[in-house]
Design a protein around this nucleic acid. Structure first.
Lengths: 205, 205
DNA sequence: AAAGGAACCGACCGGCGGGTCGGTTTAAGG
DNA sequence: CCTTAAACCGACCCGCCGGTCGGTTCCTTT
């Protein structure tokens, strides 16, 4: 089974390095040699494991990006607590570098979706679907929050969910490569203010 | 002076069509022939007027995108009224297609900034600078709002400004090509809620 | 009307990069 | 061992596209 292990390991190395470089330089601005040189692998090795650059990237999306986004932004929503702090916390965690996420996995969605939506509809759809899952989970937890009396009755949960996602994605464009901690902090602060606005007002004694 | 007119007209046609196609397909995914064929012009004509594709795009940024973003999102802020409705209105206007803006000029900034920030720092800087001007004007009008008692004293104006911009840019990724009117409407609604949160509370009688 | 240059033409160049393919190394199975 | 195929190698192919260049047309100027 050594051969089988080797295959797994090589594919995994290719995917990990590929994500790193694609994220850093963009998909279309990265050529395969950039990645292969780093790993001391050849074109032949690459095309032995993947049928095309596109197939390769789809594998990366499904095995790495999707997994990570779900783990960071979707799974944490699966709780019975007050939704707004839970959402805030998941986003804060997702923005925090240096933990499990050396790369800000959620953030890169904005870059890749923008890059692919005009070039490759198929890949764009895979990426959008990841956002979609996040969205439906947000909507669902927000609706429960309404029932549980944490969120004001007038709030449009679908609207709120896409607004949260939009602001999160948009931060990426502002942050760009500069890992500006101040901007991240500010963003979370403003998101809190927005959450204040949709929170159920406490009955004044 | 006929020659001079001709030159102006050709350059203008090139820029207008260029923006249209670049916006539609992305800069790096558009080749010059795509544009030239549409205008029945030749490579020779193009390189007579512009020294490179890059030079061409910079001209478009400065003469079309910048102008339009300023007109739609910056100029309207130059008023003494209550800031929050003014900001909301300018954004609503900017999102409204079919008026002066057949193309959503503010929106395309997200696409182009994302596209260039990993490919061409110079152009990325030009685009970021446009956002920067919007940002400082937002900060300035928000600060005045605080002085005038329209905005709560605890609000961080810089944070608020970048949050507004982030949410606006992020909408683009969600909307993508689909001119989803519902999503735009929802966005404006949620922005209103956020504005409620930073607005100076009316003194209860 | 002749000269000169601006506006424009379009065949061609050359680098880049995804993908191919015949060959070599390595390890599993008999 | 010795066969077989998986894993890997790297020279090569080829389409794409930004940019070039020698030429033609058209307007302006004198």
């Amino acid at each position: 089974m050594d051969k089988n292990l080797k295959k797994r390991e090589t594919m995994h190395r290719l995917c990990a390095k590929g994500l790193e470089i694609f994220h850093e330089k963009g998909y279309y601005n990265t050529n395969l040699d950039d990645i292969l040189k780093d790993l001391s692998l050849s074109k032949g090795a690459f095309y032995h494991h993947f049928k095309s650059k596109e197939d390769y990237f789809i594998t990366i999306v499904q095995n790495l990006i999707q997994q990570k986004v779900y783990a960071l932004l979707v799974e944490p929503l699966n709780t019975q607590e007050n939704p707004l702090p839970v959402i805030l916390d998941s986003i804060e965690q997702a923005l925090e570098p240096g933990k499990a996420n050396e790369i800000a996995y959620g953030f890169m969605l904005n870059d890749f979706i923008t890059e692919f939506s005009k070039r490759n509809k198929e890949i764009a759809t895979y990426l959008r679907d990841i956002l979609k899952v996040w969205e439906v989970n947000l909507v669902s937890i927000l609706k429960r929050g309404k029932v549980d009396g944490h969120i004001a009755r007038h709030v449009d949960c679908e609207g709120a969910a896409s607004y949260i996602i939009a602001s999160y994605l948009g931060m990426r464009t502002l942050l760009a490569e500069s890992t500006n901690r101040q901007l991240k902090y500010n963003y979370v602060q403003q998101l809190k203010l927005y959450f204040n606005a949709i929170e159920e007002r406490q009955v004044v004694a």
